[in-house]
């Protein structure tokens, strides 16, 4: 089960999981190389890469949560509008209700946890289809956002602004601008949070009982039950974690944009699902990898960057590209699955 190596028990055939992960990483590098070759050296600058990270720190966190529930065989489409709700609530708290950064963080976590608890309970213990529950969650969050505040506004809170503009320089990665001055490369705080989330979840999924249980119930929940795993509690945990991560992701998003708006992060759930799928997480559950999801987000944003560099910067092109990528990878998964079933029978 070495991560980047072939499962040594089956020397001739890669395990599906590793195969999909390899495809993802290959696609990312291929795309990045294409970008460098065809779109000039802008993509060679480290800062271009770090900007992709800065832009997508929140998405990485959301996609990680999405991967968790997808590994268990479910889905959570409420994370996008939940992000908007978190942004708006934090913004209102900071500017109108005299809150500080700490209360804002608590609010973000609180909203995420509340959604996770309710959705998790409905899905795991009342056995309602995840899609319906989270669809309702999505619309609830969407409506609540405008109830909290209907219009967009930028946050003025100084403490928050200071935090927002904090830049962490990456040593040795800077570049020289046209005037010959050295510009250090930097990442925002959100990126650090995102990387921590990725690292923690990687450990959770690989080395903890809970993490392995996610895979087990995604692989075959009845079997998992027979093997002595508490399927309901495990499922509940997955949605709870996804909710909390959406809270964290929401705050990171908020930190990046510094404003509250009902239209924030619209379609983020689709990007998160797309990233997970591209990262090799199977919709049918049981297989997936946080590292893959991370690369999935990078692939997705690289292709968006390429699309906009090509001068096709109208928003519709990105959406169409994203949809095309989801479609492509869905079909790949469907083919992989049917091949596997055929091999079995």
């Amino acid at each position: 089960m070495n991560l980047f190596k072939n499962a040594d028990g089956s020397p001739k055939r890669m395990s599906d999981q590793n195969l999909l992960l390899t495809i993802t990483i290959a696609v990312f590098f291929l795309m990045y190389i294409c970008a460098v070759v065809f779109l000039g050296s802008g993509f060679l600058k480290p800062q271009t890469f770090f900007n992709i990270l800065n832009e997508n720190a929140a998405l990485i966190i959301l996609a990680c949560g999405m991967s968790l529930v997808m590994i268990t065989g479910g889905i959570d489409i409420s994370v996008g509008t939940l992000t908007a709700l978190v942004c708006m609530s934090c913004a209102v708290n900071l500017d109108y209700n005299g809150g500080n950064v700490l209360t804002a963080i608590l609010i973000a976590l609180g909203i995420g946890t509340a959604f996770g608890l309710v959705q998790g309970y409905l899905i795991a213990y009342l056995e309602i289809q995840p899609f319906i529950v989270t669809l309702a969650g999505m619309f609830f969050a969407k409506g609540m956002t405008t109830i909290v505040n209907a219009t967009q506004f930028n946050v003025a809170n100084e403490e928050f602004q200071a935090l927002k503009s904090t830049r962490i320089t990456v040593p040795g990665m800077g570049s020289y601008n046209k005037l010959g001055n050295y510009v250090p490369a930097y990442v925002e705080i959100g990126v650090v949070v995102a990387l921590i989330v990725v690292a923690v979840l990687f450990v959770v999924l690989r080395w903890t009982k809970l993490g392995r249980s996610f895979y087990a119930i995604g692989g075959n929940s009845q079997s998992a039950n027979m093997l002595g795993i508490n399927v309901k509690r495990t499922k509940f945990c997955a949605y709870l974690l996804c909710g909390i991560l959406a809270g964290i992701g929401g705050f990171v998003y908020f930190l990046h944009v510094g404003s509250g708006s009902p239209s924030h992060a619209s379609g983020a759930e689709m990007n998160a699902i797309a990233s997970s799928i591209i990262g090799g997480t199977m919709l049918s559950g049981g297989s997936g990898n946080i590292i893959g999801t991370f690369f999935g987000v990078l692939s997705l944003s690289t292709i968006k960057n390429i699309v906009s560099s090509l001068g096709l910067d109208e928003a519709w092109w990105t959406n169409i590209t994203v949809a095309a990528m989801i479609c492509l990878f869905l079909v790949i998964q469907s083919v992989v699955l049917s091949r596997k079933n055929k091999a079995k029978s």
Partner: peptide
Amino acid sequence: VISSALPAYKAVVVIILVILSAPIV
């Protein structure tokens, strides 16, 4: 009720409906 807030109310209706129609319940 402003139109953009409508989804929240409808979501509540949906949730009540699906809970009531859930086999376990």
